[in-house]
Deep mutational scan, measured.
Amino acid sequence: VDYIVEYDYDAQHDDELTIRKGDIIKNVKKLEEEGWLEGELNGKRGMFPDNFVKEIK
């Protein structure tokens, strides 16, 4: 499942992704941690907030 970024987010920890509006995040999975998703961007896998992105259908 792929998501498109709607709002910029700067990573706060090493396991998070810095994302920018218009980025496409690939292979996204829901995490047990409420409010977070995990996906791949530019060869890096990491977490990001689910309210900054929208699923591409």
Rank of each mutant, 00 (worst) to 15 (best):
P49Y: 11
D2V: 14
N42G: 08
V5Q: 01
L31E: 07
D23R: 03
F52H: 09
Q12H: 11
G22H: 11
D10G: 05
W36T: 03
E33Y: 14
G35W: 04
E32N: 11
V53R: 03
M47I: 10
D14K: 13
E34N: 10
N27D: 11
I19Q: 00
R45T: 08
I19H: 01
E55M: 07
I19P: 01
D23Q: 15
G22A: 05
G46N: 01
K26D: 02
G39H: 00
Y7D: 14
E55T: 05
D50H: 14
G35Y: 04
E40L: 12
Y3N: 02
G43T: 05
G39V: 00
D8Y: 04
Y3A: 10
G22L: 05
N27T: 08
K57I: 15
E6R: 15
K29L: 15
E38N: 10
D14N: 12
Y9D: 00
K57R: 07
E33M: 12
D10V: 14
K44M: 13
Y7K: 15
N42F: 15
Y9W: 10
E33H: 13
N27I: 04
V53Q: 03
N27K: 07
G43R: 08
I4R: 13
F48K: 00
E40Y: 11
Y3L: 04
V53L: 03
Q12W: 07
I56M: 04
D50S: 15
N27L: 14
G35V: 03
V1D: 06
E40I: 08
D50L: 15
L17N: 00
E34V: 11
F48D: 00
E6Q: 11
D2W: 15
N27R: 12
G46L: 02
E55K: 06
V1E: 06
E33L: 14
D15G: 12
E32W: 11
Y7G: 13
G43A: 09
G39Q: 00
I56G: 03
K21A: 09
K30E: 07
L37E: 02
I4A: 07
E55Y: 02
M47E: 03
I24V: 07
D50F: 15
I19N: 00
E34D: 11
F52G: 04
K26W: 07
R45Q: 05
D14E: 13
K30W: 06
V5F: 02
W36E: 01
R20Q: 07
P49Q: 13
V5P: 02
E16T: 02
G46S: 02
D23A: 11
K57A: 15
Y3K: 03
D14L: 14
K57F: 14
D23S: 10
L31K: 10
E32A: 10
N42V: 06
G43W: 09
M47D: 02
V53A: 15
F52T: 05
G39A: 02
E38Q: 07
G22R: 06
E32S: 14
K30H: 07
E38L: 06
G43P: 01
L37S: 12
R45N: 05
P49G: 06
D10W: 11
F48L: 11
K29M: 15
V53H: 03
Y9V: 01
V28F: 02
M47H: 06
L41V: 08
N27G: 08
L17P: 00
Y9A: 02
P49S: 14
D23H: 10
E6M: 14
I19Y: 02
L17D: 00
K54Y: 05
E6K: 12
E16A: 07
D23F: 07
I25W: 00
E55V: 13
D2P: 11
W36S: 02
K29T: 11
A11R: 11
D15I: 12
R20E: 03
I4H: 05
R45D: 01
E16D: 05
Y9K: 05
D8Q: 07
I19K: 00
G39T: 01
E33D: 12
E55H: 04
T18Y: 03
I4E: 07
K57W: 15
V53P: 02
Y3M: 06
K54D: 06
K54A: 09
E40Q: 09
E40D: 11
I19W: 01
D14G: 13
H13T: 09
I24Y: 06
D50Y: 15
K57V: 15
H13G: 08
A11V: 02
N51Q: 11
G46W: 01
A11Y: 02
I25K: 00
V1Y: 13
F48S: 01
R45H: 05
I4F: 10
K54P: 02
I56R: 10
E16M: 06
V1H: 13
Y9H: 05
P49V: 02
R45P: 03
D23W: 12
I4P: 01
A11F: 02
H13F: 11
Y3R: 04
D10T: 12
M47Y: 07
M47F: 08
R45Y: 08
F48R: 00
D15L: 12
L41Y: 12
I4M: 09
I24N: 03
E34T: 10
Y7R: 15
V53I: 04
D10H: 12
E16I: 02
L37N: 04
Y7V: 09
E34P: 10
Q12V: 12
Y7P: 00
G35K: 05
E6P: 03
K44I: 09
E34Q: 12
E6S: 08
I25A: 02
I25V: 10
G43Q: 07
H13L: 13
D15W: 15
Y7H: 13
Y9E: 00
N51Y: 10
V1R: 10
L31Q: 09
I56A: 05
K26Q: 07
Q12M: 11
D8L: 02
V5S: 04
G35I: 03
I19R: 00
L31M: 11
K44G: 06
V28H: 01
G35Q: 04
V53G: 09
L41T: 06
D10Q: 11
E40T: 12
